[in-house]
Amino acid sequence: MKELTYLEAINQAIDEEMARDKGVVVFGEDVGGDKGGVFGATKGLAAKYGDRRVFNTPIAEAEIAGLATGLGLMGHHAIAEFQFADYILPAVNQILSETTRMRYRTGGDWTAPVVFRTPYGAGVRGGLYHSQATDKIFLGQPGLRVVTPSTVYDAKGMLKSAIRSEDPVLFYEHKRLYRMIKAEIPEEEYLVPIDKAHVIREGEDLTVISYGLTLQYVLKSVADLAETEGIDAEVIDLRSLYPLDKETLIKSASKTGKVLLVTEDNLESNVMSEVAATIAESALFDLDAPITRLAAPNTPTVAYAANLEKEFLVSEEKVRQAILDLAQF
């Protein structure tokens, strides 16, 4: 066992998969050379695997996506980095019109497995354009997988699975978690499925569903409230934002009868809207309380000033209060 940060786990996953499969190629803005990405996720890889397999691209997100997809068509497996999730927007046409629809529109004749990695998330004083979770743009697009790891263990295991997936995967990494969380993970190889939600903690009183940074708050609050208030909460990490692992979500909601959904995205039309609909559709008569949502306000995105950012973000205190309120409903 060895202690790694979330960021180191990402780097290690790519490194191992590049060593395993010569078809794996890595590129993006500032990804190659000695820099290895603005967060260092690909640090050391260019020196190890050469400039043909690890390289810088111009600032051209549609090109990055098209390049990755074209390589996928030819049997390579590209790991393309978008420097920030906020900057993925110029590539939306490529990702949705080409990458996502390639398998379907050719009846499976042409396929384009690709991993698009991108750091997302707030809490780093990133203002409007270095804080967003743009995943909602890509949810509900059959053919594309949208996933995000929320633990160090999953960061490595899920990325390795994504690189081996035959489907295109949009892989969101929470940038606040990069250096915030550390964990010991096995030195031997392991994989984590990218299509299954993870019941992190089993409980009877209520279900809390989350992912990303807010999942850390959920885990701390739940542990604390179990001790201080005797609340026995079940905690689920979504892992896959699309498609949803409906079975796991419905099963838990039916068991506990109370559901709290926590995301750092704006309240409306985010992944939790679909989670709520799924649970309402299949488990309504098992519920003892309305489905509760905790999220950011419906302002466009995060503001820079420290107090404004704090006001926007879901915090540990807000999570704790929401769990208490629901337990007492």
């Binding site: 098209g66 074209g70 390589l71 068509l73 049997g75 490529q94 019109s97």
Partner: peptide, 22 residues
């Protein structure tokens, strides 16, 4: 395969072409 969103095949083609170098 060609989709209807014109010119998206250009970036796609660069990936196809880069595979020859790899």
């Amino acid at each position: 395969s060609f989709g209807s969103t014109v010119t998206t095949q250009y970036p796609l083609a660069t990936g196809v072409a880069y595979s020859a170098i790899l």
